[in-house]
Design a binder for these strands. Structure first.
Lengths: 143, 143
DNA sequence: CTAGACCTTTGATCCAGGTCTAGAGTCAAG
DNA sequence: CTTGACTCTAGACCTGGATCAAAGGTCTAG
């Protein structure tokens, strides 16, 4: 080996800053098994490398895609399984995609219902004439 | 008045069944100020009328439209304000609509990003070749 | 009368995903 | 050396929207 190549180690604060996440969150992820337990300095300080930074970014991206921490734990395990993992990862991503589509469809239904009400509401007059209030109070939503 | 017209009063359980909501939820809404404190029988049992049923349905519908309980409390107050309330109710509904649109747009963005990844993933091979894993690990999402 | 359903209250618990605290130790700059 | 910023731990607390438990009182059908 070459002479003790100084792989620069990062404190938890440095990692937090780099990734844009709170220190507490990093420790929380570690507790929850999303991040491996890092090396420690003699003082007990956690010591991270670039791999940890990458993994943390992975977690944040996956979260932005709507994966739960539970699912992310799962993805991480899969991504570690060379070759066999890829298939499962794709499957998870497809499931996530389907779930998002469903959520969008649901929101769209609500949205359109609400839009109709807003359009039909004159914005003045008695509450009995307000279709928004009527829709909320009366029997069936669209019946 | 006519001779003590028996307005049939409902127990909390009957109301719960009629609206399709848990008893605990009704008491919770009462505590949270979404439902007025009902009459009580001599025994202390809550005694509801049809108005309460209507108001509870209002709450559930509004919740289905994505209003938070906080916002619903607000809507209820507004709907009680005859005439002046209507304008404010419409405004709230418009705001809600805009918020939903924003949420849909956001989800759609995520959805499309995820779809591209899924389509580009062969479903086998090494993790380094899997665009899903690469996207999660690598630098910029779309860069 | 009694079983069993229903009701009362206060207060605890749940879920995810963190966030904050206290009290103590460590590190880098001046 | 001192200061101030940083980190450590264990564990409590937060949000929203309920949901449940415990311990007791009430109501109704048979």
């Amino acid at each position: 080996m070459s002479m003790t190549t100084q792989i620069p180690s990062l404190t938890i604060g440095a990692v937090a800053k780099r990734v844009g996440v709170a220190i507490d969150t990093i420790r929380y992820y570690e507790r929850e098994g999303l991040l491996p337990e890092p090396e420690r300095r003699a003082s007990g300080y956690r010591s991270y490398d670039e791999g940890a930074v990458r993994q943390l970014r992975f977690i944040r991206r996956a979260k932005d895609l709507g994966f739960t921490l539970e699912e992310i734990r799962d993805l991480l395990a899969l991504s570690a399984d060379r070759h066999r993992g890829v298939k499962a990862v794709k499957k998870r991503a497809q499931e996530r995609l389907a779930a998002i589509d469903e959520r969008i469809a649901e929101l769209t239904r609500v949205r359109n219902g609400l839009e109709q009400l807003v359009e039909a509401c004159p914005g003045h007059g008695s509450p009995e004439q307000c279709p928004i209030l009527r829709a909320l109070v009366d029997e069936e939503p669209q019946a």
